[in-house]
């Protein structure tokens, strides 16, 4: 989204708080880097379980983002464009996972999808399916916590998008589903992408709901944030290294994707 500009053109009253914001957000990361035990880095990285936890984190965060896109984009459309009653109540409900402490979210998931849960006990009786303590549970917990970020972003993009394009499509005879696919979606694609990134990042860092609902078991449910937390109990150095790995991988992924989008947008 680069546009031609004249000079840097940033007014001074914005520069100072913006610089403070950067310092506030970046200094803790620098703190981590300073304390990193570089000499034992290789040893920490190749410790058993690190690769496994990283792989599990990436796979489950990506799956959670996929599920959020599939369910969240239609929900955002409903919130932004439909005229159903109680839309504001619906919007407030959607943001509940943002406010709920994630550990409580995990308990809430138990009450619905756990062995004794409303839906979970039926799944168990009818199909012999139990969800807690499985990788599926990790994806569900992450989706629960992260999807609202996507929904809010996409809804914002939909509201900002010019609805007249959709009106024109409608007057030209397109039904609402066709309009959604061929006009609305391309129009808000950048918003969806931004929301998906936010959602993925939140899912990747998810801790509370995951450790509660999915538990912590290496190879099945132990994602990087869980590994970091437990390492912190015994060996803070290892925790710092693990955090850096997670940080590095997520930054690299986001930069790579961003590159692709920018190139895509330019061509």
């Amino acid at each position: 989204m680069s546009r031609p500009r004249e000079g840097t053109g940033v007014p001074l009253p914005l520069v100072v708080p913006a610089a403070l914001a950067v310092a506030f957000l970046v200094l803790p990361v620098i703190g981590l880097l300073v304390r990193t035990p570089w000499s034992s880095l290789g040893e920490q990285l190749t410790a058993p379980g690190v690769g496994e936890a990283l792989r599990l984190s990436l796979v489950s965060a990506t799956a959670a983002t996929g599920a959020s896109l599939l369910l969240g984009v239609p929900l955002a459309w409903v919130l932004a464009r439909s005229r159903i009653r109680g839309r504001s109540v619906l919007r407030a409900l959607v943001t509940v996972p943002l406010v709920l402490p994630p550990v409580v979210g995990g308990v809430a998931l138990f009450l619905v999808l756990g062995r004794q849960g409303i839906v979970g006990s039926w799944l168990d009786d009818a199909f012999g399916i139990t969800i807690p303590f499985t990788t599926t549970a990790v994806v569900i917990a992450e989706t629960f916590v992260a999807m609202p970020f996507l929904v809010i972003s996409v809804e914002g993009a939909l509201r900002a998008a010019d609805a007249r394009f959709e009106d024109v499509a409608a007057t030209l005879g397109a039904d609402r589903w066709t309009t959604f696919r061929t006009v609305t979606l391309p129009l808000v694609a950048p918003g969806i992408a931004a929301g998906a990134v936010l959602c993925w990042a939140r899912a990747l860092g998810e801790f509370g709901a995951t450790i509660t609902f999915a538990g912590n078991f290496p190879g099945t449910t132990q994602t990087m944030p869980l590994a970091v937390y437990l390492a912190l109990q015994r060996d803070p150095e290892a925790a710092v290294v693990l955090s850096l790995v997670l940080l590095g991988v997520s930054l690299a992924t986001l930069l790579l994707l961003r590159d692709r989008w920018l190139r895509g947008a330019a061509s």
Binding site: Q116, I211, N216
Partner: peptide
């Protein structure tokens, strides 16, 4: 043969209380 290795004792107890 544990299914979960919890971060503290109260977390393990909560899972018992919930019957999970």
């Amino acid at each position: 043969a544990p299914d979960t290795l919890d971060e503290d004792v109260r977390a393990a107890l909560t899972k018992v209380e919930l019957g999970e």
